[in-house]
């Protein structure tokens, strides 16, 4: 029987008002957590927000998230055949879902408050 990775993902745009989505992803040895997240977007829910650029090379350093409370690059953290808890970086300003504001302050475009 094929193995399953269960990704329990924090969703929302306000840290105080989020919810959890759980998705079952077919597990293949050697895959990354980012592979699993991209699978979820293409097969189940394209609204899931994640930030990444280089996909696999660990060159862009954009895909930082927390897996089970530990900060990792989603492209090098291995997918595992168990429940994995995915949350946005707790020490950064939340943008949406797993996306946080990680750019240096000088590189953030300042938007006036509505």
């Amino acid at each position: 029987m094929s193995e399953i990775a269960t990704l329990k993902i924090w969703r929302g745009s306000d840290k105080a008002n989020g919810h959890w989505d759980s998705h079952q992803v077919p597990f293949e040895r050697g895959q990354s957590v980012l592979d699993g997240l991209r699978w979820v977007r293409a097969r189940i829910d394209p609204t899931l927000a994640i930030r990444f650029s280089c996909i696999n090379a660990n060159a862009c350093k954009e895909c930082m998230v927390e897996v089970d409370g530990e900060t990792v690059y989603a492209c090098t953290a291995r997918l595992e055949p168990r429940e994995m808890l995915l949350t946005p970086l707790s020490n950064k300003k939340l943008v949406r879902d797993l996306v946080t504001e990680i750019a240096p302050p000088a590189e953030r475009f300042a938007v006036r408050e509505k």
Partner: peptide, 12 residues
């Protein structure tokens, strides 16, 4: 559209 000097082809 991504972070400055991180995305694209150069870094790869």
């Amino acid at each position: 559209r991504s972070l400055i000097g991180r995305g694209g082809a150069t870094v790869m």
